[in-house]
Simulated scan of single mutants.
Amino acid sequence: MPSTELELPQADDGGTEPPVRCEACRSAFESESQQTVSFLLLDQLTIPVLSCDDHLQEFTAVCGLTSEDSADLLDHLPAGGVRCPGCRNARYDSSHPLVPVQDGGVVITACPTHQSAIVERFRAGLRTHEQLTATLGTTHSATR
């Protein structure tokens, strides 16, 4: 059986500083407990995610900018569970994308199809956020 432990990416510049500076995020990534898993509910998707509460909230808010419905975050398995069999079993795969959010990040523990879908939703949400704040004449780079 493959390991459930996640590998954190190394700093791109070859330095010693990790790409995720948020200690709470790093603790969530390194925890072997299933209690650290949250679930992002966005349109018809139920995506398991790992991070600290603050960065999960930020990630959820940005993803919600691309949805007609609200994006919700649950700290427990939703009623009906995770519908996609690939997402249910993805926790056994150690190659999950780390999406940078401020000084932390979110690990998406879903199947490759839903990983791509949610990462694209997040990127679209960032573009929408930038357009909204540019229209207002303000800049906010908190989610970069």
Rank of each mutant, 00 (worst) to 15 (best):
residue 65 L to S: 08
residue 27 S to F: 09
residue 88 R to V: 05
residue 61 A to C: 13
residue 4 T to F: 12
residue 48 P to G: 08
residue 29 F to W: 06
residue 102 Q to P: 02
residue 43 D to W: 10
residue 124 A to H: 04
residue 57 Q to C: 13
residue 55 H to I: 02
residue 131 Q to Y: 03
residue 120 E to Y: 04
residue 53 D to V: 06
residue 100 P to G: 06
residue 67 S to I: 07
residue 98 L to S: 01
residue 88 R to P: 05
residue 38 S to G: 07
residue 129 H to D: 02
residue 6 L to A: 11
residue 135 T to E: 08
residue 3 S to T: 15
residue 23 E to L: 12
residue 35 Q to A: 15
residue 85 P to Y: 10
residue 39 F to C: 01
residue 74 L to P: 11
residue 90 A to I: 03
residue 8 L to Y: 10
residue 67 S to D: 06
residue 139 T to Q: 15
residue 106 V to E: 05
residue 81 G to H: 12
residue 31 S to V: 11
residue 57 Q to S: 15
residue 104 G to D: 00
residue 95 S to L: 13
residue 13 D to C: 03
residue 121 R to H: 06
residue 102 Q to M: 07
residue 130 E to Q: 08
residue 60 T to S: 05
residue 122 F to R: 05
residue 34 Q to I: 07
residue 54 D to H: 13
residue 3 S to P: 08
residue 70 S to N: 14
residue 5 E to F: 07
residue 76 H to G: 03
residue 121 R to T: 02
residue 136 L to C: 08
residue 27 S to P: 01
residue 64 G to V: 02
residue 45 L to F: 13
residue 108 I to C: 03
residue 130 E to T: 03
residue 66 T to Q: 09
residue 38 S to W: 00
residue 41 L to V: 08
residue 22 C to N: 09
residue 67 S to T: 01
residue 111 C to G: 10
residue 59 F to R: 04
residue 126 L to M: 15
residue 86 G to N: 09
residue 6 L to D: 06
residue 111 C to Q: 09
residue 120 E to K: 03
residue 119 V to S: 01
residue 12 D to I: 00
residue 19 P to V: 08
residue 122 F to L: 10
residue 1 M to C: 13
residue 100 P to L: 07
residue 81 G to Y: 12
residue 93 D to F: 10
residue 129 H to E: 06
residue 133 T to S: 09
residue 101 V to H: 00
residue 107 V to L: 12
residue 125 G to H: 00
residue 51 S to Y: 00
residue 33 S to I: 11
residue 53 D to E: 12
residue 80 G to C: 13
residue 50 L to T: 02
residue 70 S to G: 14
residue 116 S to A: 07
residue 67 S to N: 08
residue 57 Q to I: 09
residue 38 S to Q: 02
residue 6 L to G: 06
residue 142 A to G: 15
residue 137 G to Y: 07
residue 140 H to S: 09
residue 72 D to L: 15
residue 7 E to A: 08
residue 90 A to F: 08
residue 4 T to Q: 14
residue 69 D to W: 06
residue 119 V to N: 02
residue 106 V to L: 05
residue 56 L to Y: 02
residue 22 C to S: 10
residue 113 T to Y: 14
residue 81 G to Q: 13
residue 82 V to S: 01
residue 68 E to I: 05
residue 44 Q to I: 09
residue 10 Q to L: 13
residue 37 V to D: 01
